[in-house]
Nucleic acid binder design. Structure first.
Lengths: 319, 319
DNA sequence: GTGGCGTGAGAAAATGTTTTCTCATATTGA
DNA sequence: TCAATATGAGAAAACATTTTCTCACGCCAC
């Protein structure tokens, strides 16, 4: 039995009798034959390897994305290099070079902001690149969450819960996602909008509540927060003031960061960006591109979903 | 100029005049020559690739370890495959097989508990394995934090701050690290020890404070918590009762999970397990083993350090 | 002057696959 | 029955390197 015949049998290529093919496969299984991926890659130009580049060191956004990518690709025999670069363009370059040396089949660039590029230029590379949850070039393939749709979900939940005066306590105006979410908020509520910008911290949530409650005039009965940390600050501050959540004021967060949302008292209703799904999609796309299939460039927005806990119950679901 | 001469020049092997060597290197640089890692790996049996296996999906422990590993190895041209397996032994097997197919030079097994093995057997593999922050076989190379030493640091900090009655509010007794930390606590304090076991959550921190304060008798003036989440619950509960931290009661946590420790009011003094350093060490060891250098099996304990914030100030540092 | 040796450089083998080519045999049609 | 065609299997080339061998040349000593 020649090596070439065996190869053809195992790869379902070439011409041969079904009987021979079966026989080879059976023996290969018995003997535990594992083809050497390096030798195979050398000739096929595919390493069954992709690189995931990220500058999100907390892993808050990258880990779910990574999990999705891996989940999608492991069935195709593709493994994932994870490279954490912390906004250091030189280090990023080293990592990218290392990946190229290993002839990855593609690269997924991921980050923590939709309006910032990674500190390294990935255009003009010989391998396909997919941008997931980070800014890519205009002619690149980019995946992101649909923040406007997510914000609409959140605000509608508050409205369904009966809120009439809803305020948006959110992060810095410099973040594109902050502006998008605020815009969707303005377009969805009935009354006059009020947007309070601050930083992404619990402390700002506290302070915002102080501002809103210590001034005269009507108090809000619903608060749409820019992320879960701010929401937690808001909820804590309200509880300290004796304001009941969600009876007096309903609160909705953004991110569904489990560790924050679930530990808040009461647990947060919040928007989930479905980053795992986004990761799967990124994996699917980069694999398709590496196999030469045509992929339309442009920005793909993936829908968010609402995770209802106790800080805002919206309409009760029909029984 | 023959290919073989070029190869020898670039690898500083073989015999040749220094002049030729220099000339080859210069041209290689100019022309941007990058050797194909696959072909190189095929012959040298080294892929300059290692696999990091983890069942810590939150990334709380794995991300710092990963960062350390990567940091240590990128300079040697080694890239890291990250495989997140969630206690699914079949999936783990698939990932390990994929790594072996790609002939990784070594595997680092990492986890979230020191007393649990990953759901896959890594003994008898052809490649070296290092266990980092997870349980390994007795004859394996294992790296872990020195929890007893870390606990001593924490308790001493409380004692230095003047605490006389220190209580240990911690996680489930089934965790080895809980027992080790509690043992160190018992051995370090002066008075009679008191250890309260619960789950790893803020809610348990609250409840523990309720138990301690709602019963009669002397109140503690120092609380050593099993992790930062419990510590946060404790601090929040104390504040709600009007107990001042650290003036009335000093609190020390464990883990230095930034997102929890820094957002607590006041910010937590806590023990850092130096997981990044642990990761670096794991990278160093697996690299050494893959290069055939002898590494003593056994458990290596790496020291923890204390991060002083405001919940316990210990002795003021000399000016 | 010639044998031995050190030196530098190229030739060739090896790595483990896939793929293309070649060839022998069996099958079919006239 | 013989040529044409289809079929199955092996031989060989290719992939991009490293490494071991071989060889030519010059130098030195005897």
């Amino acid at each position: 039995m020649s090596i070439s015949t065996a190869s053809k049998a195992l790869n379902d290529s070439g011409r041969m009798s079904a009987e021979t093919r079966e026989r080879v496969k059976k023996v290969a299984l018995e003997v535990g034959f594992r083809p050497n991926a390096l030798a195979r890659g050398l000739i096929t130009k595919r390493s069954f390897t992709i690189g995931l580049l990220t500058n999100d060191t907390y892993g808050r956004f990258t880990l779910p994305v990574m999990a999705g990518v891996s989940e999608e690709l492991v069935g195709h025999g593709v493994s994932v290099f994870l490279c954490a670069i912390e906004d250091d363009s030189e280090r990023a370059r080293v990592h990218v070079d290392a990946m190229l040396d290993k002839s990855v089949d593609g690269i997924i660039a991921s980050g923590k902001r939709l309006d910032r590029q990674l500190p390294v230029d990935l255009t003009g590379l010989a391998v396909p690149v997919v941008y997931a949850f980070t800014k890519g070039p205009v002619d690149g393939v980019t995946l992101r969450s649909d923040d406007e749709q997510g914000a609409r979900l959140a605000v509608r939940c508050l409205m369904d819960a009966g809120c009439r005066r809803i305020v948006n306590v959110t992060g810095p105006k410099t973040f594109q996602s902050v502006r998008e979410r605020a815009d969707a908020y303005r377009a969805t509520i009935d009354g006059p909008p009020e947007v309070l910008h601050g930083i992404w911290s619990e402390a700002w949530g506290h302070e915002a509540v102080a501002q809103l409650w210590d001034r005269g005039g009507e108090k809000p009965d619903g608060i749409f927060c820019g992320n879960d940390q701010i929401a937690r600050g808001v909820v804590d501050a309200l509880r300290e003031r004796g304001v009941r959540v969600p009876e007096d004021v309903a609160v909705v967060g953004f991110d569904n960061w489990d560790i924050v949302a679930a530990q808040t008292r009461p647990p947060l209703t919040t928007v989930d960006m479905n980053l795992r799904t986004l990761g799967r999609e990124a994996g699917r796309l980069v694999l398709a591109m590496s196999e030469g299939r045509e992929v339309q460039p442009g920005i793909r927005k993936l829908p968010c979903s609402l995770v209802v806990r106790q800080s805002c119950r919206g309409l009760e679901a029909p029984a």
